[in-house]
């Protein structure tokens, strides 16, 4: 029979060699799956804030695992310990692996010291999503915000991460900005470590 004997079995998932992360699936497969995740989540909540929180939770679970995986595979078991280091890790390494490109921009908030923004003209998860009028400011980017929070939290940089639509002049669709607001302790530690 076809297939038999070809597959090596491992008694434990940890014995299995780590994939190199080159495998791909079709974007539609992901879009279908994500759409089911959103639709299912909608049945479990009463309002938009809860819906975003659920998507964020799902993203968080992804982020925590991505950090572990990428630190091991891409960084030789090293993890960033400084604020700018971890931010650029998210903006470049994580984005490149998950979304196939580095994020469009990483900026520091102008009004608050503890805020940073990662912006994307067309976030992958929002590509096939249109928000009904009655759902207001709901943004499926909450899922990506969750991924970012999962990565940051796992690396010891707790933060509140939210996704927002930002209208762009001359563009039909708004871009999505992931707003990262670090916890106080992170900034205190950062200033103690010095520049």
């Amino acid at each position: 029979m076809i297939g038999v004997g070809k597959i090596k079995q491992y008694s434990n998932v940890l014995d299995k060699p780590l994939s190199r992360g080159r495998q791909e699936v079709s974007l539609s497969a992901f879009a279908f799956l994500f759409s089911e995740l959103v639709q299912y989540s909608q049945t479990q909540v009463d309002n938009i804030a809860e819906l975003e929180r659920r998507l964020e939770d799902a993203g968080y679970a992804v982020g925590a695992r991505v950090l572990e995986l990428l630190c091991h595979r891409e960084k030789g078991n090293r993890r960033e310990t400084r604020l700018l280091g971890i931010l650029s890790f998210v903006h470049s390494t994580v984005w490149k692996v998950l979304f196939g490109k580095v994020a469009d921009s990483l900026e520091k908030g102008t009004e608050h010291e503890d805020e940073y923004m990662i912006s994307e003209k067309e976030l992958l998860v929002n590509r096939f999503i249109s928000i009904p009028k009655d759902m207001g400011a709901f943004n499926c980017g909450a899922f990506v915000a969750g991924i970012v929070r999962g990565v940051l939290d796992g690396a010891g940089f707790p933060a509140v991460v939210t996704a927002h639509f930002v209208p762009m002049e001359g563009q039909q669709r708004p871009r999505t900005t992931i707003l990262i607001k670090f916890a106080e302790e992170v900034l205190r530690r950062e200033s103690r470590l010095g520049g």
């Binding site: 994939s19 992360g21 495998q23 791909e24 699936v25 079709s26 974007l27 539609s28 497969a29 992901f30 799956l33 994500f34 089911e36 995740l37 299912y40 989540s41 659920r54 939770d57 799902a58 993203g59 679970a61 992804v62 695992r65 991505v66 995986l69 692996v97 998950l98 979304f99 196939g100 992958l124």
Partner: peptide, 20 residues
Amino acid sequence: IDRVNAELFTLTYGAMVRQL
């Protein structure tokens, strides 16, 4: 066709199953 990294797909599916 357009493709995405399989790990994003895998981990997202896993997150969904755990929520379920």
